[in-house]
Design a binder for these strands. Sequence first.
DNA 1: GTCTATAGCGGGATAGAC
DNA 2: GTCTATCCCGCTATAGAC
Lengths: 195, 195
Amino acid sequence: MARKQGSHSDITGPRVQDTALRLIARHGFAAVSMRQIASEVGVQAGALYNYTPDKQSLLFDLMQGHMVDLLDALRTEELHGDALTRLKGFTQFHIRFHLPRSDQVFVSYMELRNLAPKNFAIVERMRRNYEDALEDILRAGEAEGVFSVSDTRVATMAIIAMLTGLSHWYRGDGRLGMDAIESIYWDMVRKSVAA
Amino acid sequence: MARKQGSHSDITGPRVQDTALRLIARHGFAAVSMRQIASEVGVQAGALYNYTPDKQSLLFDLMQGHMVDLLDALRTEELHGDALTRLKGFTQFHIRFHLPRSDQVFVSYMELRNLAPKNFAIVERMRRNYEDALEDILRAGEAEGVFSVSDTRVATMAIIAMLTGLSHWYRGDGRLGMDAIESIYWDMVRKSVAA
DNA sequence: GTCTATAGCGGGATAGAC
DNA sequence: GTCTATCCCGCTATAGAC
């Protein structure tokens, strides 16, 4: 089956996405050229345009795809019960979803500036939905009297920043496994909003 | 005194730095051209090279300058007393220093990838020094028995991420003033490491 | 679907006049 | 110290052969 050239749409397509994600995470969107992506994929630059209309769409697809995956996974999680249980579920979900996706997290945080305005608005709306899921939990906890935060919005942003920051420094080959990390972060999150 | 052309080294120099910082914060280092910076400063592109040997040095000077300012200010703060008092001082210091410098914070977090390896090492060492100042406080609190974190390094990273995240969304014209923000964050930081 | 070739543009940096 | 002019390079995107 191996051909030196010809049709490879089934394998080249995913490879373009994967390669672009890795290179953009490492060097930044503006610093990565289509030639560079093509070279790592193993095709010529022109061939990339069979898979994306332009460079901007490539970035948008990566970021939108990540957010869609995130919101889908969160919905599947279906966090039930009292606020404390839901907060624990959210914390664990966030860590387990994001830790194995450090490149996506990096790109989604760093490259917002490079999205065209219309694309930015779409991604930003999805990010806001995710934040709102956490804020709902904090509000419920306030109502139950188990949480005490003077501002649920600020607390939401603080917790998400704390959790997401993890993806910026954690390396799976370090001294701490994902379970240990989860336990440490859950302890801090829980206490930070405790009544 | 106004001249259409001639010597302006005393005013052009700072303007180059300020303009570069603002443009890089908004668009990213790789996306900003020397021509664009020169245009906003009001000179031709070639004139920039009287103030910086190249584009890379311009970025490095911005980032190094920010870190030097940060570490100098922290030393001036001289946090004394018990661990809880020191932690409160660190939290307030961090917020008060970073909130009015959102462009510097943005650039310092986003553009590490664009530093040449040698420059990266220098900036990274200074960042590590800053983190260590917080970890010292957490260790002291553990020894005093007033803090309970299972891992001081992870707790350090979590707290700094939480505090720095503030700079990414806070806008001074919002509903919350700096004092209110400080109070909310201190409440969360304090509780997150409480014994 | 991929290739080669190229159009058209803008980038960083330098040279030399003033 | 700034200007104008320019070198040389790499970029995105497209055209047309296979």
